[in-house]
Write a protein that binds this DNA or RNA. Structure first.
Lengths: 174, 174
DNA sequence: TATTGTTATACTCTATAACTATA
DNA sequence: TATAGTTATAGAGTATAACAATA
């Protein structure tokens, strides 16, 4: 069997152009990689940064609450909180009304780093969209937001994303 | 230390809106999940589908060539080719000029499945963009393509993407 | 008895490194 | 000696399940 040319041409075109799905995945992963690179000087990973900012947005959550919000296991949260606590960016405080809970708060250093991360994030956004003109960038982000809404992806954290050396072509194609 | 409100407001806004980076990641992962779901009836995963289509586009590649193109290890390719060969979608053919090489070709069934996959892919694309009007969809894909080009992501396969249960918030945030 | 946080265990996925057969 | 493909091994990463403290 060899080369039914109609199908082959179709496949070639699709692979060459890339559909919305493929491009979204490709760009999403690239964005992730760039973000991770920006975090290196801070000595934290993407998930540590994410957790830090979540706590900054609403202080005092329990680790359980964060695990639920981020849709991961509590045991995973422990390690991330440990890392952030070791770096003295957040601290666990006992809660008087329920001593089982370790409420999480940013340290002074944590707030400084959070502010720095927001600056970094602004640059990251500009860099990502540097191939677009200002009006196009606005339009692009709006379209992304509308798509996310239409797929029910806001305001929850997305359910997953590969790390820098995760499965290398798990979702590839279309 | 508690709640430097300027930073906190900034963080809250960013997390609520989501920047281009976060939205790209979120949507990219979602697209991947939907695609994987579409592949289930075929009994193959995203990487098997990707490899099948790569071979359909250019028949007769060595496994080494595919590994280089997809930027993964050769040992990983072996398993995927095994799966596709077991499903009788592709076959390894010896190459007369160099008997070390197993050249890959689609079987008759493989071509039928490839054709089906293209239909599936078309539907997938429509579904992904169903929240946009036709003109917006065209504009959106064009913007994605331009961004991919500006970041040097075309025509290579993207360097990675998490699987369905990979790191669940590895790249989250911005 | 149920729940928070922690630790221990088992499993999946992947790349690296042997190994074989050809060149 | 080098290369294509295969298999075996080791490492990272995660969730599940057991555990301790508190409710």
């Amino acid at each position: 069997m060899s080369r039914p040319s109609a199908v082959q041409r179709q496949v070639r075109r699709r692979l060459a152009e890339g559909g919305a799905g493929f491009l979204l995945s490709q760009l999403g992963f690239h964005a992730s990689t760039l973000w991770r690179r920006r975090l290196e000087p801070f000595g934290i990973g993407a998930r540590e940064a994410n957790l830090l900012l979540r706590v900054a947005a609403d202080e005092g959550p329990s680790q359980r609450a964060l695990a639920d919000m981020l849709e991961v296991s509590t045991s995973l949260v422990v390690g991330v909180v440990d890392a952030l606590a070791n770096a003295q960016l957040i601290e666990r405080r006992p809660r008087p009304d329920d001593r089982r809970i370790h409420a999480l708060y940013l340290t002074e250093k944590g707030w400084r780093v959070a502010a720095d991360l927001m600056k970094e994030s602004d640059e990251h956004e500009r860099d990502l969209c540097s191939g677009l003109r200002p009006a196009e960038r606005t339009e692009f982000v709006e379209l992304l937001q509308r798509l996310a809404v239409s797929h029910g992806l806001i305001p929850h954290v997305h359910p997953g994303f590969g790390d820098s050396r995760g499965k290398s072509w798990g979702r590839a194609q279309s």
